[in-house]
Design a protein around this nucleic acid. Structure first.
Lengths: 343, 343
DNA sequence: CTGAAAGCGCTTACAG
DNA sequence: CTGAAAGCGCTTACAG
């Protein structure tokens, strides 16, 4: 029968504390603390006794007390642009799945693709002294960058990679992926390939860059093939852009949309207008989101490894938190062309 | 110039503390604490002085210290089934938007529609002594229900409503919404209306119940019209179910899918198979998710008020946290039929 | 209405 | 390798 300390002060919370465990194991609170945290230099026999006592009493450390004493919380701040983009939902799920068994909670901040919102969220999160941070990409306000550095909180960037010294990242080359998709379209005989983008966040601009490079190499680049719209990405917008591009002359023979939701909207609009895909127009997307393989015709796109990215980022962060330098400072999870019937 | 206390111990964190503010305002730490938390019975002049000092020094309370002393964290646990269902993403966003300005963080737990995962997540969250809880629906394990009651943490249920004493909820009648959609199909002259569902979570079963009630009233119910699949909901599954139902005889003339992703998959499959919607088959969904209005033809569905639901739940929770009984214990945010061309 | 004391449950920093 | 003391930065509970 667990017997918490017999006398309890006026503010006792009824909780089993470290002192209870230490008392039960016949050691000091300090030794109990060290034993439970797996610190080195503790007698193996005492470790066993403390662990047994903790198990017997059902002890669980109080995160608030631990955070106050150690000046470090048991949570990780995760800053992502949006949950409405299924891309980030997959990343988040993978991060949580990796972090939770290690005893860390993910605190999600949604920046809405806005650098000042991101900065504000970061300030709030740093007040809680997170054990680590996951942030999206490398474009941040100067203040955000400084807050991260000065806080000295371990930080992993996701979506892109960087070779910069002291910077940790997990992602893939948006540029290379876009180049490869463009090469695929060229190999299919397409020549007037439009690039249609929304939101215009950094990753999108890198994809634009990849498309440009490939088009220029082939002597096929034409500024009129660039359709850049800063509005949020959506199926409806994709449909609108498709109609606009369709009306252009000289005629475009393929459209590379920077995200699948745009491409899906385009495919549906093509159906409505009776435009045959890919006979009249090839359509490709990016990210291989839910439903892309269900479209009519199924959408050619770039499969991105969101689960692998989130898991690798979380693992890297756990290593940094435990002051073990990760094996690699930049992990490239790659991508995979998903060629389907729309191209 | 802000001058933190001149002498700092060996563990000083450099942070501006309440003591610094109190010193600067010429009051005790207690008075400063009370003034900043807006407690009653504090001299208005002292409040002003303390607030001025806090602003001048850039003081922000330490959440860990506050949590330890008050035995209550500054975060709210939110338990939802999945982020892959856009429905919950909207609820979460609204909750965060309402909670953040009040100084509370949302800690999101994803249960994957699994009661034991939910229980596990709840146990972890309660260790952090959340200020409040938001949970999905009313079907939980006995242990989960007991944990909530015994923890005495204010709790608001979302998605459904309950009139039970002492239970707080924000939602709408899934049953009534399903009845209304079924009536719409009947009014359009449909008679053999199938109900096709996946996941089979409690809300889905309530929708089934609403459809059944309406079909029985019209003497049209037939057990063979019920297509229940426990697999996770997806566009691909909707397509499969559509093909199966299509093959059934006697012929079905409408399908009510329990969620839009299934219905979207069905519409795309209809396009692929050359089945005319609604001429050959009417198709309806539920939730009015992204893309439903972009389908070919646009999907008739039930618009649910996720934003209003999340915001109302968060407001209700804030009231409960501040021990102000909310105006209503059960808020019905309603729903709205979105009649489009698929029916 | 205000304050001195004690305490929340841990860990750091030091000494042995 | 182990422990007594002090401290993290707040709030509770009591007294005035």
């Amino acid at each position: 029968m667990p017997t918490p300390s017999p006398t309890r002060g006026r503010r006792a919370s009824g909780r089993i504390t470290l002192a209870d465990v230490a008392h039960s194991a016949g050691v000091s609170a300090m030794t109990a603390s060290r034993a439970l945290r797996g610190e080195r230099h503790v007698d193996p026999e005492l470790i066993a006794r403390v662990q047994a006592a903790a198990r017997k009493l059902g002890y669980v450390p109080d995160p608030a007390a631990r955070a106050l004493a150690s000046q470090q919380g048991s949570h990780v701040g995760v800053l992502i642009p949006a949950l409405s983009n299924a891309l980030f939902v997959d990343v988040i799920e993978a991060i949580q799945r990796t972090l939770r068994p290690a005893g860390y909670q993910a605190l999600i901040g949604i920046t809405h693709y806005d650098q000042s919102e991101e900065e504000q969220l970061l300030r709030e999160q740093l007040l809680h002294r997170p054990a680590g941070l996951v942030v999206t990409g490398f474009e941040h306000s100067a203040a955000t960058r400084e807050l991260i550095v000065r806080s000295a909180v371990p930080c992993v960037h996701v979506m892109e990679t960087s070779q910069e010294e002291g910077v940790y990242s997990v992602g893939f080359s948006q540029r290379d992926a876009a180049r490869e998709l463009t090469r695929h379209l060229l190999a299919r005989g397409r020549r007037r390939i439009a690039f249609a983008a929304a939101q215009l966040d950094p990753r999108t601009m890198q994809r634009l860059d990849g498309w440009r490079g490939e088009m220029r190499s082939g002597g096929l680049h034409d500024a009129r093939l660039e359709w850049l719209n800063p509005a949020p990405s959506s199926m409806a917008l994709g449909g609108q852009m498709f109609e606009q591009i369709l009306a252009q002359s000289p005629r475009v023979d393929a459209i590379f949309f920077c995200n699948d939701d745009l491409a899906q909207g385009a495919l549906l609009t093509a159906l409505r207008l009776g435009v045959r895909v890919p006979a009249d127009m090839a359509v490709a997307g990016f990210n291989d989101l839910t439903g892309s393989d269900q479209m009519v015709p199924p959408l050619t796109t770039v499969g991105t490894r969101r689960g692998a990215m989130g898991a690798a980022a979380a693992r890297m962060l756990l290593a940094l938190i435990q002051r073990q330098p990760p094996e690699q400072a930049a992990v490239d999870v790659g991508f995979e062309l998903a060629v389907r019937e729309s191209t």
